[in-house]
């Protein structure tokens, strides 16, 4: 998928580890990695809200469009 959740810069700015963010947001590290690598199919508003709250940012600052092929459909 061409949409990625850009967490690295926000985490660096806040001096926060991925593990800590996972704990605060209530999402597993594996799922955060799926978000980071653009493998996720969708993101819940509740997850996005928690991320924005913990990283003190707007959704538009987290979501990044990267040109590329779409993920293949599951058959």
């Amino acid at each position: 998928m061409a949409i990625r959740v850009d967490l690295d810069k926000r985490l660096y700015d806040r001096r926060m580890s991925l593990t800590e963010l996972a704990d605060r947001v209530g999402v597993t590290i594996a799922n955060l990695s799926i978000l980071k690598t653009g493998k996720a199919r969708a993101i819940r508003f509740s997850t996005l809200e928690a991320l924005c709250r913990e990283l003190d940012c707007q959704p538009g600052e987290l979501l990044v469009f990267v040109p590329g092929p779409l993920n293949e459909e599951v058959d």
Binding site: V27, N31, L32, I34, L35, K39, A40, R41, A42, I43, R44, T47, E73, V74, D75
Partner: peptide
């Protein structure tokens, strides 16, 4: 079942 599997996969990749 194929559609069910697809939806399951979608749910798995919805974070």
């Amino acid at each position: 079942f194929r559609e069910g599997a697809r939806l399951r996969r979608e749910a798995e990749l919805t974070i």
